[in-house]
Amino acid sequence: MRNILLAFSTLFIISCNSDNNDTPPIAEETETMYFPDNNTDIWETKSSAELGWNESAKSELVTFLETKNSKSFMILVNGRIVMEEYFDGHTATTPWYWASAGKTLTTALTGIAEQEGYLDIDSKVSDYLGIGWTNAPVEKENLITSKHLLTMTSGLDDALGDNVSPANLQYVADAGTRWAYHNVYVKLQDIVAEATAQSWNDYFNNKLKSPTGMTGAWIPTGDLNVYWSTTRSMARFGLLALNNGKWKEQQIINSNYFNNAITPSQSINKSYGYLWWINGEQSYHLPQTQFEFQGSIIPSGSADMYMALGKNDQKIYVIPSKKMVIIRMGNTADDENFAVSDFDEELWVKINFVIN
């Protein structure tokens, strides 16, 4: 009888406390997001053992990365370094090229210029660069907006090589009706420079590089500017992307714009945003083809992942559900490629053995 009374009393107390608005519910403790200091390369770490990862699978992942011509590999969780590996004489202070993974830097600067009122991505490119920046008929050229450059839907011929001089930018289809991976996106850098009345380098350094503590530089390569930096600087940008354009307490890139950048930007290639690749969609296109492939780009990768992918397997993978950023720099894992390759799927199979 005494035990029954004690149980009843306990239930009564719990019932009263649950109705008491002055007693907040106990919240599950979560680890705060970490950002490295802007003026140093010191970075907090977290062990994979603390996260419950498969320690025995790590060595297999590292061996795989080494055999696939990698220079560096890094995993951040909540901003903290969990894995950091270097290969083939590469070190934490050695710069390497981002290739087309750096397109997402152009996305970021374009968004910053728009939020500062310098440009409108829905305005036609000729408003900033003047008529004749392509070889298309004027009425077709005037259909092309900055958003078309961001989404790879300019309608210009992608089969004519990397040259982006006016003579080589020829009309194939009306803007917005055809998706094709094309270096014409680089004209966004000219638009930003023209609109802000600043050089691309100065605007980049002031608005993105300095606020995040990145190092590195744009190196002219043919008709393109290619960004070179250390692995940790690439990881800083990945961390900014994980946090929807926010670095510490500063919203560097407008969150609405950034959300648009990492979601399907048009209906032709559902796996492409604003120069970001998107995983987990129903179909995708690849560079240099008009064929539509069914399924997700990286079936073994997280469905919510978005990616900056560059020639010869330069990678930034951002996975919000895991609060994770993964970086891979190096030479091509297998055959030379433009951005997406079979290596992505192979790598993610190995990563999953470690983190799951």
Rank of each mutant, 00 (worst) to 15 (best):
K248A: 14
A49I: 09
K209W: 09
D120M: 10
E139I: 10
T40F: 07
V349F: 10
N142H: 09
H285W: 09
A303P: 12
Y203H: 11
F293V: 08
D174G: 06
A235F: 13
L105M: 15
L129Q: 07
E139A: 13
Q314Y: 06
I297D: 04
T93N: 11
N243F: 03
K103S: 06
P264T: 08
V340A: 13
K323I: 00
A235R: 07
T151I: 13
A167T: 10
N135M: 07
F343R: 00
I297Q: 03
L109D: 11
S296H: 04
E116A: 05
G330P: 05
A303E: 14
D304R: 03
V82G: 02
Y227G: 08
A308Y: 01
G52S: 10
E44S: 06
E346W: 04
S321F: 01
L347S: 03
I297Y: 01
T289S: 15
S321Q: 02
A261M: 06
D41E: 12
I252P: 01
F353E: 10
L119G: 07
T45D: 08
N201G: 12
D122T: 13
N279H: 09
D158N: 15
T91D: 00
P211M: 14
K68D: 01
D127Y: 12
P25N: 05
T221R: 11
N78L: 07
E194P: 09
L169Q: 08
Q250V: 11
Y284S: 04
L275C: 13
F338S: 12
N356E: 12
N201V: 12
